[in-house]
Write a protein that binds this DNA or RNA. Structure first.
Lengths: 215, 215
DNA sequence: GTATAAACATACTGACAAGAATGTTTTTGC
DNA sequence: GCAAAAACATTCTTGTCAGTATGTTTATAC
C-alpha cells in the first residue's frame, strides 16, 4: 500500500504541480508576446491566468526564472519536432527539407513561446546580476547552439553525400535559421486558417530556403 | 548683411543642434543595443554621452521619441545603401545580389541602430497610449514595408526578365530579409577585423541567400 | 557689452512594478 | 477526521526610472 501510495499518490501531487506550472509558463509566454519581456508584469500573467501574483511566486522565484522556463519549453518544442526527422534514413537534402519544414510549423504552432525567446537574450545577459542566473542563461544558449548544430551537421553530411553544395556551413546555417525564424516576426494567426495553410506556408518557405543549397 | 546672417549664422545654429541630436541618437542606439529597449535608461544614454539627462530632454520630448529617431536613422542607413543599386541597369538577379550584399554590409556597419529596432516594434504597439505615438509608429512600419517592397519589386522583375524563379514573392521576400537581418543577431564586432572581413561575410551570405532563387 | 534665448546641468516627484511578508484555503498523509 | 503542508490570495515595502521644474552656463543678436 505504501508502495502504491508512492507510485500513484506522489505523482498525482507533482502532476498537479507541474500542470499549474505549465499554465503559468503558457500565460507568461502569451504576455511576453503581447507586451514584451519587460513591460509584461507578473500581475499581467496572473490576470491572464485568472489568478493572482501569489500563485506565480509560489512556483517561481523570480520573473527571470519564468522567462527561463518559457525559453526551455520553446527549445523543447523545437527539438521534439525536429529530432524524429534526424533519425530517418534519408539523403541530407531531403532530411534538411523535412527539418526546415518541421521547424517552420512548430514556429507557427508555438508562436507565443518563440516570440518570447526571440527578443531578450542579450537583454538578460547584461541585466542579470546573479551568477546563478548567468549560469542558467549560458545553459539555455548552449541548448540553442546544440539545436542549430543539428542543422549544421546535416549540411556537413550533405557535403559528404553530395546532395548539397555548401560553401560555408556556418553562414548557411545562420541563413537557414534566420529565414525560418523570421516567421515569428511576420506570421499572423488568423482564426479561420487551419493546419493546411500553415502546411503550405511551411512547405513554400522550406523549399525556398533549401533550394539555394542543392548540389 | 541680414541675408548673410540668414544664410550663414542661422544654419550654424541648426547644424549645431542637429549634431547634438545625432550624438544623442547614437548614444541611445548603443544603449538600446547593450541593455535592451526598456532596461536602457535615459540616464544611461546621458552617461554614454558624458552628459546629463537635461540635455537629452532638451532635444527630445520622451524616450519613445528617441527610439523613433533611432528607428528612422536605421531605416535611412538601409535606404541610402540600397537605393543606388536599384538605379543600376542590371538584370534582376545581379541587382538582387548587389542589394542583398549592400544590406548585409550596412547591417554590420550600423549594428547598434539595427539591433535597437529589431526588438520592440510589437512592444511599443501595445505600450504606447498616445495616438500621436501610434501614428509615428505606423509611419515607421510603413517605411519598413516600403524598404522591403524594394526587394519584392526586384523579385517580381526577375520573374519577368526570366533571371529569377520565384514561386511566392511574398515568402521569398520574407526569407531574404530574415536571413540577411539575422546578421544583427549573430554578427560580433571584433576589433581587429576590417571591412575586408565584412565584405567576405556579406558576399557569402548574399550568395547563399540568392542562389535559391536563380532561374 | 548687454539683453535674450538656447543649451545644457541639478534636484525633485510621482508612478509603477518586483518581490517579501503575511493571511487564508485546500489538499494530503496517516 | 485531523494535523501538516502545499497552494494559493492579499497587503506592504522598496527601488527605480520617466518626466518635470528649476537653476546655470554659453552662444547669439543688436
Amino acid at each position: 500500500m505504501t508502495v502504491h501510495a508512492q507510485t500513484k499518490e506522489k505523482p498525482k501531487l507533482t502532476k498537479r504541480k507541474m500542470a499549474s506550472q505549465q499554465q503559468i509558463i503558457h500565460a507568461a509566454a502569451v504576455c511576453f508576446m503581447l507586451y514584451g519581456l519587460e513591460k509584461a508584469t507578473v500581475n499581467d500573467m496572473a490576470r491572464e491566468l485568472g489568478s493572482t501574483k501569489g500563485r506565480v511566486y509560489h512556483h517561481f522565484a523570480s520573473k527571470n526564472e519564468i522567462f527561463f522556463a518559457v525559453y526551455r519549453q520553446a527549445m523543447q518544442f523545437c527539438f521534439d519536432a525536429v529530432e524524429p526527422v534526424l533519425c530517418l534514413p534519408l539523403p541530407a537534402d531531403q532530411k534538411l527539407f523535412k527539418m526546415a519544414k518541421a521547424h517552420a510549423i512548430v514556429m507557427m504552432e508555438t508562436l507565443p513561446y518563440q516570440r518570447s525567446i526571440r527578443q531578450g537574450v542579450n537583454m538578460y545577459l547584461h541585466g542579470s546580476d546573479s551568477t546563478a542566473e548567468r549560469a542558467v542563461l549560458s545553459e539555455l544558449i548552449a541548448r540553442r547552439n546544440a539545436y542549430e548544430d543539428l542543422y549544421r551537421s546535416v549540411l556537413q553530411q550533405g557535403q559528404v553525400d553530395g546532395s548539397l553544395s555548401v560553401p560555408d556551413v556556418a553562414i548557411a546555417g545562420r541563413a537557414i535559421m534566420g529565414a525560418l525564424n523570421s516567421l515569428v516576426d511576420w506570421y499572423r494567426v488568423r482564426p479561420e486558417q487551419g493546419t493546411a495553410d500553415q502546411e503550405k506556408i511551411a512547405d513554400t518557405l522550406a523549399r525556398t530556403v533549401i533550394r539555394g543549397l542543392l548540389a
